[in-house]
Design a protein around this nucleic acid. Structure first.
Length: 880
RNA sequence: GGGUGCAUAGCUCAGUUGGGAGAGCGUCUGCCUUACAAGCAGAGGGUCGUGGGUUCAAGUCCUACUGCACCCACCA
């Protein structure tokens, strides 16, 4: 077979993917006695398309999954998508241009289902384009029946354990979306507002306290004013009461350290229902909670004449009225932060509303313990600190949302007797009074409640299925560090509580893909890069290469499209080298049948380059395997990349060409072939498509590279001596090339060289060496010092002395400059050694072999310097 | 306000237990040498953010500072 001139990734990638899928290479093996490797995919939201972060995350997972599969594990990589309740709801409403007021829940859910079908399949296609080798038979969606079953099971269980409770606490509320929202969905924006100084008269007195507030419209909710107990200005107000303006309600003055003496007047109005800190203070001082807003964020009847007005309108009118009543002392401009709902842009309103909560205090204990005793590991480790910090600062989690697209809370209310029934199965009649007037809770669960069960709910839990028993707990989670709190922690405590096990042993964090300036990709900056576009233009392999070689664990990537041009080159190099090897094998080995390799041992004579490359290749196998096992993706790829390009292509292939073109020994073709196969396999996890295409074209024993065996290190081929010998040869070649380049000798011009070795034993290695002839334009080698050094350039090193003839090649310029450069370098090294060795402390305290080494260096460098000095002098003499 | 990370060549980043500063890209020079000009060969380029400390020895450990990024809390 031969390879096309170029790899046609546009056509081939899809076909190769389909070939894998058709042959079920992605699926788990039926043999559940094998060692397993399981990993669940962080489910992308069905809100749109995949972004670069997904591409990075999927690439990393796929690399490790393909690696493990080739290592012989029974691999489960379980794919899925997330319903993303609020995000999807908003998108659907926007797309259909409808409001939830004008549509029934059922109709809306129909739309949502349509949306899901459409976007899920789009996202799945994108996941495939990246090359993800996940098991599509195991596809899950966070709203699937089996997940719903697990969700209801957990809800009932946690309710019975009193971990889930219904309560009235302050929560973030979006008046536009009319639902409680997660704290994380509140983004803060700087706002130019005013600080109003209002008079609060003391009861039955003309004395008043001045309260500074940015929100005068919330006075209807005031249930106290607060002062710092150490604020000496207000000591006389203990046990006094004040009258809330306009409302004319009598409220207490409470003393609390929370109040900042230096802000405003040091007097704070307390509105427990609409401010988190005020709520806390109200709990401590047992204050009344007065809700003053309706569900749409307008003032309710507690605001009297202002009832029905929205925040900004009511603020205007109340200020007018306060001014009229002479209750405003002054107003100041102030910059402060206001909370915005990140998904719809509305100003959020903290509210006290009945919601469902999950009590955190007990759940976190095993999470902390499992980290502290190293059962749970983070890569990189530092995220453990972040993890612990989160766990130690958790508030109870508000899990209910007033939305439609999600798991409806399995709580039923008897409309006859008021009984609250919590049951995983649907309830048709009241257990207490048998009434059939049963109404299910309207709220749904926070999206993360179902995602928290992902690693086990997807495996059939709460049933003890075969899959669950075999694949759970999973081995690894690969995810972005930005969802450590939202997702990772929630999975861990849910898993501990429900399955009594850690859901995964290791967590590998990928970073964020940023633009070339280091900015986050976002719609507002319009700097997003679509991974699918990149794949169209460069191929999935190039994208994967770029995302792997660039990315350290847990650190962000600056992604520059310009770099892709370079990354593409590696695929090209791989392709061309393979093409060359295939061609040369076909043209030079008639029967193409191997008779020469038995039991992994070559029975033909190996020369210095053969031994070198075989040893190096086996070292690389060791290194790369070890690096992948510790999830060092970038370093692993770099290792193969460097070996392939700078050792195999630059040196070994070049050596082989010489042998083959000279019609000498052609058995090296088998080594070319073997090392190529090793490289292809080592590269396959990173570049699955191109390696498969090549693999299928160069051999017919195995059906696919993705199910072939990971290379093993053949210890009998490890050979440090040969590596060193070849290195020695290389340094001679490089020195000669350097001299030629400095002297501008055209590559086609041959010349002769004198090489004088310090170690005469090595002479046989270089004498008449074909590689020296072939790789640096030499036509004759002498091993002695020439009698006439005229018209020669010279380089002197530790190991050898090289004189290159310039006869008839260039003008007769001397080589003083080359030697002087070297002289300076050696001088610097001598100075360094001198300095260290003249330090008595060093000689006394440093390790002995280190001192000896330094002495030896100094000695040989001095010798070298001497030689160079003489040579320079000679050159000058000759010139004058 | 609390926390984490980063600072090394013009750019992007490696640098494992402290023991002679690395790569790729870009730049410069020479080459279309029968796999690859998306290539080959060669060269130049760094007071390792600043100041202190530990040590015989610091890019590496400690400390203070500066700058940048991010996370959390929050501004009545």
């Amino acid at each position: 077979m031969i390879l096309e001139k170029k790899f046609d990734f546009k056509n081939r990638e899809n076909k190769i993917y389909n070939f894998w899928a058709k042959n079920n290479f992605f699926s788990v093996d039926d043999d559940y006695n094998k060692k397993k490797f399981s990993i669940v995919m962080p489910p992308p939201n069905i809100t749109g398309k995949l972004h670069m972060g997904h591409a990075l995350n999927l690439t990393w997972q796929d690399i490790l999954v393909r690696f493990k599969r080739m290592c012989g594990f029974n691999v489960l990589w379980l794919p899925g998508t997330d319903h993303a309740s609020i995000a999807t709801e908003i998108k659907i409403l926007k797309e259909k241009n409808i409001s939830k007021k004008n549509i029934t829940r059922e109709k809306f859910l129909e739309y949502a289902q349509e949306w899901k079908e459409k976007f899920e399949s789009e996202i799945i296609n994108q996941i495939k384009k990246i090359g993800s080798s996940c098991d599509w038979n195991e596809l899950n969606f966070t709203l699937d029946k089996n997940i719903n079953r697990a969700v209801n099971f957990v809800f009932e269980d946690l309710y019975n354990k009193k971990i889930i409770y219904k309560g009235e606490k302050i929560i973030n509320y979006c008046p536009n979306c009319m639902t409680s929202i997660a704290d994380a969905e509140v983004k803060y924006k700087e706002d130019n507002g005013y600080l109003y100084y209002l008079k609060y008269f003391l009861k039955n007195s003309s004395d008043f306290l001045v309260v500074a507030t940015t929100r005068p419209e919330t006075i209807f909710g005031d249930s106290a004013i607060a002062i710092n107990p150490s604020d000496i200005r207000y000591l006389s107000y203990i046990n006094k009461k004040v009258i809330v303006p306009i409302v004319n309600r009598e409220v207490k003055i409470v003393f609390d350290n929370y109040v900042d003496i230096n802000f405003g007047t040091g007097v704070l109005k307390i509105t427990p229902a609409h401010d988190f800190n005020d709520f806390d203070i109200s709990q401590k001082h047992n204050l009344k909670i007065i809700n003053i807003f309706d569900d749409e964020g307008n003032l309710n009847e507690s605001a009297g004449e202002f009832c029905g007005l929205n925040v900004s309108l009511s603020r205007e009118k109340i200020i007018l009225k306060l001014e009229k009543l002479n209750l405003i002392i002054k107003k100041e401009k102030i910059k402060h932060n206001i909370g915005i709902h990140e998904r719809c842009g509305e100003i959020i309103e903290p509210m006290v509303k009945p919601q469902w909560f999950l009590k955190m205090s007990e759940l976190t204990k095993p999470c902390i313990k499992s980290y502290e005793n190293h059962e749970l590991k983070f890569f990189p480790e530092r995220f453990g600190e972040v993890y612990l910090k989160w766990l130690n600062n958790l508030n109870d989690w508000c899990i209910s949302r007033q939305l439609w697209w999600g798991h409806r809370i399995p709580v039923y209310y008897c409309e006859t007797c008021g009984e609250i029934l919590v049951n995983q199965e649907k309830i048709l009649s009241c257990k207490k009074c048998r009434s059939k007037k049963i109404k299910q809770e309207e709220s749904i669960l926070d999206t993360w409640f179902s995602s928290a069960l992902w690693p086990f709910a997807t495996l059939g839990w709460p049933d003890k299925t075969l899959d669950y028993e075999y694949f759970y707990p999973t081995d690894l989670l690969v995810t972005g560090y930005d969802i450590l709190f939202f997702w990772v922690i929630k999975m861990i405590f849910s898993a501990f509580e429900e399955t009594k096990k850690l859901p995964f042993k290791n967590v590998l964090f990928n970073g964020i893909v940023r633009d070339k300036f280091g900015r986050k990709m976002s719609k507002s900056l319009d700097n997003g890069i679509d991974p699918i576009e990149i794949i169209k233009n460069f191929g999935a392999d190039t994208l994967r290469f770029s995302l792997s070689i660039n990315a350290g664990t847990g650190s962000d990537i600056k992604f520059n499209i310009k770099d892709l041009e370079n990354d593409k080159n590696f695929c090209n190099k791989l392709w061309n080298a393979s093409k060359f090897i295939i061609d040369i094998k076909k043209n030079n080995l008639e029967n193409n049948i191997r008779s020469s390799k038995k039991n992994n041992v070559y029975d033909f004579d190996l020369d210095i380059s053969d031994r070198f490359i075989l040893s190096r290749a086996n070292h690389i196998v060791l290194n790369v395997t070890q690096l992948l096992e510790s999830y060092e993706i970038a370093n692993a790829l770099k290792k193969v990349h460097d070996f392939f390009w700078y050792e195999f292509c630059d040196w070994y292939i070049e050596c082989c060409k010489i042998k083959i073109y000279l019609n000498k020994n052609k058995s090296c073709i088998w080594i070319l072939y073997d090392v190529l196969i090793i490289c292809l396999k080592l590269l396959h996890p990173f570049l699955p498509f191109i390696t498969e295409e090549i693999f299928l074209n160069i051999q017919d024993k195995e059906k696919s590279i993705m199910i072939s065996c990971w290379p093993e290190c053949n210890n009998s081929l490890l050979d440090l001596d040969s590596e060193n010998n070849f290195e020695f040869l290389r340094s001679i070649i490089k020195t000669i090339r350097n001299l030629r380049s400095e002297k501008n000798i055209h590559p086609s011009k041959k010349t002769f060289v004198h090489i004088i070795l310090n170690d005469k034993k090595k002479e046989e290695k270089i004498n008449q060496n074909k590689y020296l002839f072939g790789l640096c334009g030499i036509n004759k080698i002498f091993l002695d010092m020439p009698e006439n050094k005229k018209n020669m350039v010279r380089q002197i090193t530790d190991d050898f002395d090289i004189l290159l003839s310039l006869d008839g090649l260039i003008d007769k310029e001397s080589n003083i400059s080359i030697l002087e450069k070297k002289y300076k370098k050696i001088l610097k090294e001598i100075e360094r050694s001198d300095k260290i060795l003249s330090n008595k402390e060093f000689v006394k305290k440093a390790k002995k072999d280190l001192v000896e080494l330094e002495c030896e260096k100094l000695r040989s460098n001095k010798e070298l310097l001497d030689k160079i000095k003489k040579e320079i002098k000679l050159n000058y003499d000759r010139r004058s």
